[in-house]
């Protein structure tokens, strides 16, 4: 190889190295301040790394645009962690998630009644960034995400606030899709949002399968008060039936109360028949449930 060529090659290698180092600059942006989050803001969280990050400074998006998360609560990091000058580690902060970002607060934000069963929701908690923490910020942001069964966030244009009393509540409600075999529906079913074809709708009431509820009639009798509360009526309307499912988890059998149209071509207006034996939509009354 001619020496001049070797020299050029070496210079090229050095230039490539320099270019690589320079171009290796991180493309991450600092984002929005994390010290003062606001309830009701929507965010687009799409990666597990965003979900698991200690702080999440992506700029809020309008809730009418595609988003995956919405802040439902803002609270303060409690002592003694709040007293630390430098931000505590990820594990310590994430351990607070269950305590600070509680399900009760979420259900209140969603305007969920006692008998509203939900599915496809995940909770994430975000602390201030290191810089904001050192400036004194201690606000903890609690977000609710719409997610698939494996946890992947789903985009939506819906506002989660009070959503369970609104017309779009079916997207959050838990329904079951049972298999039809020999004219009989299976005891258990797959969890699906009520916007997908299903055979029964959960009413957030469950009990262990014991000898006292061994028969379908006994199970229906046990579920009836909860169904009436869910439907906001004093008597089960014509066209709606009880259809509790039986779920086995780690050997323990549990009855989950659920309701369904009495016939697949039920005279319900909101749930629509999408295929034989299945419906989409919710049986919940738009005005909410009867309390008590």
């Amino acid at each position: 190889m001619p020496r001049s060529l070797a020299k050029w090659a070496r210079s090229g290698a050095a230039a490539l190295l320099l270019a690589g180092v320079l171009s290796g600059c991180n493309q991450t942006l600092p984002g929005a301040p994390t010290g003062n989050p606001a309830v009701g803001e929507c965010h687009l969280i799409v990666s597990p790394e965003q979900f698991d990050a200690v702080s999440e400074p992506s700029p809020p998006v309008a809730c009418g645009e595609a988003h995956t998360a919405q802040t439902y609560k803002v609270t303060q990091v409690p002592a003694p962690l709040s007293g630390q000058g430098t931000r505590p580690g990820q594990q310590e902060l994430k351990a607070l998630t269950a305590r600070l970002c509680d399900v009760a607060s979420l259900r209140k934000y969603l305007a969920a009644g006692e008998r509203d069963g939900t599915t496809g929701l995940a909770i994430a908690a975000y602390a201030p960034s290191r810089d904001d923490w050192e400036r004194g910020a201690r606000a903890m942001r609690c977000d609710v995400l719409l997610a698939t069964n494996d946890g992947t966030p789903r985009t939506t244009t819906l506002d989660f606030k009070g959503m369970l009393t609104g017309p779009d509540s079916a997207a959050l409600r838990l329904c079951y899709r049972q298999e039809l075999a020999d004219g009989q529906l299976s005891d258990d079913g797959v969890d699906v949002p009520c916007t997908e074809p299903h055979t029964a709708e959960d009413i957030s009431a469950w009990f262990n399968l014991e000898s006292s509820v061994a028969t379908p009639a006994a199970r229906n009798a046990r579920c009836l008060p909860y169904a009436l509360q869910f439907l906001g009526v004093d008597a089960l309307p014509a066209g709606i039936t009880l259809r509790p499912i039986i779920r086995t988890v780690n050997g323990a059998r549990t009855v989950r109360c659920a309701v369904a149209p009495f016939r697949s071509s039920a005279a319900q207006s909101s749930p629509t028949q999408s295929s034989p034996g299945t419906i989409t939509g919710t049986l919940a009354p738009a005005g909410g449930q009867k309390r008590g």
Binding site: N26, Q27, T28, L29, P30, G31, A32, T34, S47, E49, Q50, D52, A53, V54, S55, E56, P57, S58, P59, G89, Q90, Q91, S129, R130
Partner: peptide
Amino acid sequence: YYGEACGFTGSG
């Protein structure tokens, strides 16, 4: 990416 979503796990 924004903030700590990109970088070492747990600190960004």
